[in-house]
């Protein structure tokens, strides 16, 4: 798991200079409780942008 993203990095290849998520970032992506909180947060952010755009 900890090598989840890192193992795909190819030295001096296209993706050598980017960042890859660690195990916590990866886990949180599909952690239902955390994502439920993010769901509310993202919706609020989007509604603000939508209201600024109409």
């Amino acid at each position: 798991m900890s090598k989840y993203g890192e193992k795909n990095i190819k030295a001096y290849g296209n993706n050598f200079t980017t960042m890859t998520p660690g195990p916590v970032a990866k886990f949180l992506r599909t952690c239902v409780i955390f994502q439920f909180i993010r769901f509310i947060f993202i919706n609020i952010k989007m509604l603000v942008v939508v209201s600024k755009s109409h």
Partner: peptide, 15 residues
């Protein structure tokens, strides 16, 4: 660019 490259690296998609 950083976020896109990161996702491509993570999912092992070359470009």
């Amino acid at each position: 660019k950083i976020f896109a490259e990161s996702l491509f690296a993570e999912r092992n998609v070359d470009w």
